[in-house]
């Protein structure tokens, strides 16, 4: 690799070709799904039409009739957006305080926060159903926003903490010498400097919220049901509707996959809590 002499002609061609083959294999299920979304339900199950078929947009046109897609998509968008905002509002100040005014307890608090992610959701399923039903919160968007925020809070705080830690403390102190108060530090220094980190945290939290499939399935019925619930409820009995199912699936994951492409680098730093950069 680093040594030029080791490059044989074979390895110069073979490894890249293999890399391409692997990448195409991994992408194939998605490609197949997108392809099928342009077939009619009847064509979708005919082996002879696997790759040659007459494309149609009917499945997308009929998405509202078949699945009421937009209602679920709107719910997903609303809950994920507000959950992301709420998560940031709570996590930015917290991570800021931890990064610039660490105490001896800070590390323990961070570890504890991470450990709440390990609490199995299923263990508290019934209390959550019970509580939310008695409070009248069951199947409300408010509840989903809160739950999504809570489960993403530890990851958001960790991500922001690692981004903030990269900002030299000197700069914050220079700001203090120049007359900034806490809010001024956040507004004038922290947000402008950590803008990229905050944005990618927001993006990642949004993706996690959009894809969440435990609480959104178990704590909703109709009013707050998200796309996860829609797909989960239409698992295609014996595959009669591959075409339309592919279309609604593509519509459900498309925006997020594209969004994910843009933040793959930040994803690494975020998901590994800054341990891999």
């Amino acid at each position: 690799m680093a040594i030029v002499a080791q490059h044989t002609k074979f390895s110069k061609i073979a490894w890249p070709v293999l890399a391409w083959v692997v990448a195409l294999i991994f992408f194939f299920p998605i490609a197949y799904m997108v392809m099928t979304s342009f077939k009619t339900d009847a064509d979708a199950v005919k082996p002879e039409l696997l790759f040659s078929f007459t494309p149609t947009l009917d499945n997308y046109a009929n998405m509202t009739d078949n699945y009421d897609y937009w209602r679920f998509a709107t719910n997903s968008l609303i809950t994920a957006t507000f959950a992301t905002l709420f998560t940031l509002v709570v996590s930015v100040p917290c991570a800021y305080a931890m990064a610039f005014n660490p105490t001896r307890a800070t590390k323990d608090i961070l570890m504890w926060m991470l450990s709440t992610k390990m609490l199995p959701a299923a263990a508290v399923l019934y209390p959550m159903i019970f509580m939310t039903k008695s409070l009248g919160l069951y199947d409300t968007k408010f509840l989903i926003v809160m739950v999504l925020s809570l489960i993403n809070l530890p990851i958001a705080i960790w991500m922001l903490f690692t981004y903030f830690k990269d900002i030299p403390k000197d700069i914050i102190e220079a700001g203090q010498m120049d007359g900034l108060n806490t809010w001024g530090e956040v507004r004038e220094i922290l947000i402008p400097l950590a803008w990229g980190g905050i944005a990618s945290t927001a993006l990642l939290v949004f993706i996690f919220c959009w894809n969440e499939a435990y609480w959104t399935v178990r704590l909703t019925t109709t009013d707050a049901a998200t796309l996860s619930k829609l797909i989960e409820g239409n698992r295609a009995p014996e595959g009669l509707f591959f075409g339309r199912l592919s279309a609604v699936s593509t519509a459900a994951v498309g925006p997020i996959v594209v969004l994910g492409w843009f933040c793959q680098k930040q994803l690494v730093q975020g998901l590994t809590f800054g341990a891999v950069k």
Partner: peptide
């Protein structure tokens, strides 16, 4: 980009896609 894509597919779609299609 091709390799990372599956990670962003929502689990429900992932399951429906694999078990059916």
């Amino acid at each position: 980009v091709l390799l990372i894509s599956p990670f962003f597919v929502m689990p429900a779609v992932n399951a429906v896609l694999w078990i059916n299609m």
